[in-house]
Write a protein that binds this DNA or RNA. Structure first.
Lengths: 351, 351
DNA sequence: GGTGGTGATGTAAGCGCTTACATGTGGTGC
DNA sequence: GCACCACATGTAAGCGCTTACATCACCACC
């Protein structure tokens, strides 16, 4: 019933028949191989067109022993971060003729078998941090085909691309200290995510360098908007003991800041707030949110690029760190609208 | 070199050999077919595990004559809209065991062949509006396999899922008129996108119902942030002649509003501004942006659902319209923080 | 007018799976 | 003790392509 019109399942055979040639010639004509006469090529093309022929990729994959596709495993988190990353990935992938198969790995669904299945249809895979795929599984897959992990620590046998986090976090923290803030607190759970862990370590380092310690233990919350409100609630009673809040990402930061403001707290006067990711809202909210911009699209692009190289024979183990950019707005205590400053080592692949 | 470890290319044969059974038994054991003894199943599983066996999806696809994958064609536009839509789509797809292959169709790249190639590796495709895929191409593909268009008008032979636009736009416009605004202008190009066209028509209808006409011709700009600033620049000289700006989407609206404010224009006092999409920024900016919330995730989910049904034999031609929600904040002139109101017909599939 | 070369096309062998059908093995019922 | 059946497993045929190799026609050259 679906897609009827009788031509629905044209194959290379029907095209060959209609064009009066062998299937080999059809294949050659359609792949643009040189060894076909112009006349024949035209005839084949016309036949294919008439028949609405769509070559079955699976058949080709089987014989060329390549899927010509990459897999991208994301956590279930909306937000611009993942969209941008995907764009970069897909673009780089398609430039080398690879399709992108995406999988959203949420905790609830059967991630393990979903990932396995995905692996079977791609030549290489990229795993994003926080995608609730156990590291051991990633390692297993990496023993099977090229794998790159994004925004995570190293995984044996896999490549890694990350945005620099620790030193930017230190810079960010130092910036707050230079504003005279001494009683800082970190909001976000440093444990489950390598990246957030790094930000937290950088935060601690920034404090330590100034002989300071966190005013409170980190508030271990997930990096989502509603938790920002919850965190604000938790902090309200302690506002006399803190003068700066370093959030693990912008969603948390904007929600938290807005809620504090609703409760009459002045930002940055009473308390400074900073985030991470440079989402769109960060530059529209007021005061403008001081944050860190990771090169998200570039991260995606680079992940696909790693896969390409691996498939071309490069050995695994590359570890690429991309620089981030400190984006200073007003929530930290700076007054004028003045975005500036670049922090972090420049790109430095090794191994 | 890549993914060495010698086991890299375990096939069903090597697993069969190691387990001491035939490949048929391996297939049955791994697919969970009932006709395998528990002991054998275990042995096979262990062998597969030892060998890091990853079944080649292409081989299976070839024989079962299904790709077990859907294609999703998006325009090159970042923003939460597409991310959410993809989430919904992927989720629904994976619930029925389908992978999602995404393609970002930008004008520059060779969209035509990319789409063709995509078609060959999926069982059905969803095309998003503004994805720079010519309608004729979509129609051709639709003659070949199930196709659903999202947020577009009807396409022959394809299904369609859309968010209600026109009457919500009328409601939005009417709301502004009720605030006493009489001199409204539409920002965004109604021509290339079916949805934007609908919003514009709804805008005109809302005015006409009150005996009004647009204060200016629509400002035909793309729906991206930078164009919002440009539009604001264009409107500044005419501010005496307008008191309300209806933007085709939120990105445009927030950029425009912010720029007007920078120039000393008071929103909503001097001029009201409204948008469309209900992006995150809309609720953090001040004044809060009055806008319309389309059920984006649901749209994605429904698109995948249509494909499923078509593959199950349902005839093409379904036309599903999802209701949107008017989100009233302050940029329209309302004072209290009070989101409310639902507008638009409820979901009504026909055919 | 043979010989050899060149370019276009055909022949056929798989790629790694699934599955209809054939085969084998034991247990049951009479 | 034999027929029968259910169940577990094996055999083998393809799914729709690509490509190495064989074939063929034609032309140039001496």
């Amino acid at each position: 019933m679906a897609g009827t019109s009788s031509t629905a399942d044209a194959t290379i055979y029907s095209v060959a028949e209609r064009a009066g040639v062998s299937i080999a010639t059809v294949s050659r004509a359609l792949q643009g191989s040189a060894k076909v006469s112009a006349a024949t090529r035209d005839r084949v093309r016309r036949a294919a067109d008439d028949l609405r022929y769509v070559p079955t990729a699976a058949a080709r994959s089987l014989v060329v022993r390549r899927q010509e596709a990459y897999g991208l495993v994301l956590p279930h988190l909306s937000g611009p971060y993942y969209a941008d990353l995907m764009m970069g990935f897909e673009q780089a992938a398609s430039e080398t003729g690879h399709s992108s198969v995406v999988l959203i790995a949420e905790p609830k669904s059967d991630v393990k078998s979903a990932v396995r299945q995905l692996a079977g249809r791609v030549d290489g895979l990229a795993f994003l941090a926080r995608s609730s795929v156990p590291k051991t599984l990633i390692q297993r897959i990496a023993g099977t085909r090229p794998v790159v992990v994004v925004a995570q620590g190293k995984v044996r046998g896999a490549d890694s691309v990350t945005a620099e986090s620790r030193s930017s976090a230190t810079a960010l923290t130092t910036h707050l200290v230079e504003h005279g803030r001494r009683r800082l607190v970190f909001v976000g759970d440093p444990r489950p995510s390598h990246d957030v862990g790094e930000r937290h370590r950088g935060f601690l380092a920034g404090l330590a360098a100034n002989g300071l310690r966190p005013a409170l233990d980190p508030l271990r919350v997930e990096l989502r908007e509603p938790l920002g409100v919850a965190a604000a609630e938790q902090l309200l009673p302690h506002l006399d003991r803190i003068d700066g809040i370093v959030c693990a990402n912008d969603e948390l930061a904007v929600a938290l800041m807005k809620h504090l403001q609703r409760e009459g707290v002045r930002v940055p006067d009473d308390v400074a707030v900073v985030g991470w990711d440079n989402v769109m809202t960060a530059r529209y909210i007021s005061p403008g949110l001081t944050t860190v911009r990771p090169p998200v699209t570039e991260l995606g692009r680079l992940a696909a690029d790693r896969l390409r190289r691996r498939l071309e024979g490069e050995p695994p183990g590359a570890f690429v760190v991309l620089p981030t950019e400190l984006v200073v707005r007003q929530s930290c205590g700076c007054d004028p609208p003045s975005p500036l400053g670049v922090v972090g080592p420049s790109r430095h692949p090794h191994r």
